[in-house]
Amino acid sequence: MSAHTTAAGHDDGHVHHHYTTTGLDNRKIAIWAFIGSECMLFASLIATYLIYKGRSIVGPFPHTEYVNEAGQIFKPILDIPVTSASTFVLLMSSLFMVLALQAVQIKHLPLPDGAGWWTRAQRSSQLWLFMTASFGAIFLMFQAYEFTAFVHEGLTVKTNLFGSTFFTLTGFHGAHVTAGVLWLTSLLWIDRTRGLGPQDELIVDIAALYWHFVDVIWIVIFTLVYLIQ
């Protein structure tokens, strides 16, 4: 899926500026259309999760205890504290992302006299891109930890409807985050090799739109999957 996101996002090079009807860049229109499409993608996944909620025949279950025929006890499997932390990480990465975009927009402006570290930091797109990508990677580590822990507790994609829908939904999201981290890393690499300036606002902007979208999807998933019982 992400293959053509990136394709749509970056096609047409950076050289020629053609006339466009709306005065907007093609790539930005394409990314918004893509995000619209992603809404339906995640709607299908979320709807499936909710449809199968409470219909698993055997445990483990997300919020309730389960005792199998052998008398084995499975605790409610969702780990809210850990996931709250990872949710916070992803939220913060979104903040860093807007700061990265802002940095690209304002880095050419002259620094006022006696600018403090914050003012200087605000102009460092490398810093914020790095932070965003890293926090994305940390989120993925949380997810890897969560998945491994679940497997150890006896929940795999094959166990029950909850396992199948949970891993697929959060896995799809995780795949989006992974693509995003790769994308941001590429931007960081460009920034380090040739430096991103105001003329590159657009390529950072579309990456940011994608990243924030991945974040808002997690906002929905966190509530619907983890908190609601």
Binding site: T22, L24, K28, I29, W32, A33, I35, G36, S37, C39, M40, F42, A43, S44, I46, A47, L50, I51
Partner: peptide
């Protein structure tokens, strides 16, 4: 334009979830 491109699909997606539920 972006508002339209986003809210249109969002409404259809939301309505589809609710209808399916």
């Amino acid at each position: 334009l972006f508002k339209v491109l986003f809210t249109g699909p969002l409404i259809i997606a939301g309505a589809t979830i609710v209808a399916l539920l």
